[in-house]
């Protein structure tokens, strides 16, 4: 019986550590915020080219998934609500989409 209980307890402990709300807040260690900050990628870059008002994520990914046309490839192509984090910044001339040249 004990043999089963112990791994079960361990499993429960792991599960609660990973997924459950922090238990026994008094016994919580002080959080290491500096370490957490290092894990955060920081601010998303602004968009240096024109964006349509109704732009959708698939259109962004057309270039940013792979880095087509020298676009910086995204680390998170699965996030499609691009403009919730990336906004239009100043438009740099060299970054204008060269549609007219029709380069494929």
């Amino acid at each position: 019986m004990k043999l089963i209980v112990r791994p079960m307890l361990l499993l429960t402990a792991v599960v609660s550590l990973a997924f459950m709300a922090p238990a026994f807040a008094d016994e919580q260690p002080e959080p290491n915020l500096a370490a957490d900050a290092l894990q955060s990628p920081g601010n998303p870059p602004v968009i240096p080219h024109a964006v349509k008002a109704d732009q959708d994520g698939e259109a962004c990914n057309a270039c940013h998934r792979t880095g087509l046309k020298k676009a910086p490839p995204t680390s998170h192509p699965e996030r499609l609500n691009c403009t919730s984090c990336h906004v239009q910044g100043e438009v740099k001339k060299e970054n204008m989409l060269k549609k007219s040249k029709g380069k494929k």
């Binding site: 709300a21 922090p22 238990a23 807040a25 008094d26 919580q28 260690p29 959080p31």
Partner: peptide, 19 residues
């Protein structure tokens, strides 16, 4: 003090401190 250490707790907080 409990709130200083965690990223928030959802009430009702139980007698054992869990949310």
């Amino acid at each position: 003090e409990a709130y200083a250490k965690v990223r928030g707790l959802r009430w009702p907080v139980k007698p054992d401190g869990k949310e």
